[in-house]
Nucleic acid binder design. Structure first.
Lengths: 226, 226
DNA sequence: ATATTTTTGGACAGTCTTGTCTAATATGTC
DNA sequence: GACATATTAGACAAGACTGTCCAAAAATAT
């Protein structure tokens, strides 16, 4: 789990290793089901070391949540920064954006971990997830809504409520991912691309501005609508 | 939990009471976190009675899952039977259908219980959820897809892949429900209706047939699309 | 009213888990 | 090499939970 830039031996490395093992165990078994011996074994560390680093199970859990949350948020906003603000081919670029979203936020290790943790323990430890809610997806949603609003203003999209559109965009992107995510199946690359393409296609069918870019055939439009 | 038609005293009543208490406890605490004493107390029954009825914790869990699954499936197909096959006002009727879906399948006790159980223990007890997958949402999806295909054939909708459309429909309906569901918030009635309306509106913007009902202005269509 | 079934409360052994403690070992620093 | 710090394995007490057993009490049926 520890990437190349992170310490691979020594004190800090063990700390990280424990954190990652804790994340895996808590996700797989739930808070009650995961035990310290398991986590220590999975981290390749003695039980005492876990206690040395994190004090007790509750503190370890809290550390896991905040750490993974931070990683996820960082990734989310990184991906968000690549939103196509001045697209030349809107569908294509939005599809690529959706793919990045899926790969980096929805399907990556930390993302899956965090969603499972939230699903499993969200009700039980509401305070821990306040930051997730306020600084994580909540912010991603509104940031995404702002991007869509800009695209609408620039004449690419036609929507009344960018907030709703943003939530729907994410829902569509997630649509085909629900089942696999629930059962821990892995997603092949081409299925992923198809998912993104489907979602964006439907999103644009609903929200793409329907007037011509060149000329407004208003009479044809009204004839078709009437 | 036991409705009026079900026994409210005697042997069978206790059995049901235990089942419901088990469902609540397993959802709230997870399999490992829920303990028999808790369930017995919540069911208003002694611990021994739980063992008399269900043998052990594993069997109780299995019974909870299959029972709740059956209840949910029954409801799902009941709602599905009310799908507007010959709509006079498609948007209105589809919105009502979506509301029924939300109320009876997504937001009702059993539905919430089951989704939580799946999220919490799906990976851990894959065999238990096979039926959920095969007889539950899986069947609902394909049945819904068949309804959409019929609407498309009847000229109300315009879609290439009814399966994808069905999944997207459910995803859109769910879009605004994710957060509240995750944190156990309850949904006000007007927010629910707005959610359904939003989802259906977007769905129809994407998939409503754009040709006239009376005559096919094929040349105009191609001119507009080209 | 009596017989049968069900439920109850409590005791119980066995197991698992947490968190502490200790003495020995490893790791890294000066 | 000597020293400080981090880590290890293992023992340990305290508590929680499961699943069993049993005799008394309650509910139900005959």
């Amino acid at each position: 789990m520890a990437t190349d830039t992170l310490p691979t031996r020594g004190h800090a490395a063990k700390r990280l290793s424990i954190l990652d093992a804790g994340a895996r165990a808590f996700c797989r078994e739930g808070y009650a089901g995961a035990n310290i011996d398991m986590i220590a074994a999975e981290a390749g560390v003695s039980r005492q070391t876990v206690y040395n680093h994190y004090g007790d199970k509750d503190k370890l859990f809290a550390a896991v949540v905040t750490e993974i949350t931070q990683r996820c948020n960082a990734r989310s906003f990184e991906v968000l920064a690549s939103f196509p603000d001045q697209p030349t081919d809107l569908e294509k670029e939005l599809t690529c954006f959706a793919e990045r979203l899926i790969v980096n936020c929805l399907c990556d290790q930390d993302g899956k971990f965090l969603r499972k943790l939230i699903q499993r323990e969200g009700e039980r430890h509401p305070h821990l997830f306040a930051s997730w809610r306020n600084d994580g997806p909540g912010k991603v949603w509104s940031a995404l809504a702002a991007r869509f609003a800009r695209l609408a203003y620039a004449g690419y999209l036609d929507m009344e409520n960018p907030d709703v559109a943003a939530r729907q965009f994410l829902a569509l992107v997630n649509a085909e991912l629900q089942m696999p995510a629930l059962f821990g199946e892995k997603l092949e690359n081409d299925r992923l691309q198809e998912t993104a393409a489907c979602a964006v296609k439907t999103f644009l069918r609903a929200y793409r501005k329907r007037e011509m870019h060149t000329k407004e055939p208003a009479h044809l439009e009204s004839a078709l609508r009437g």
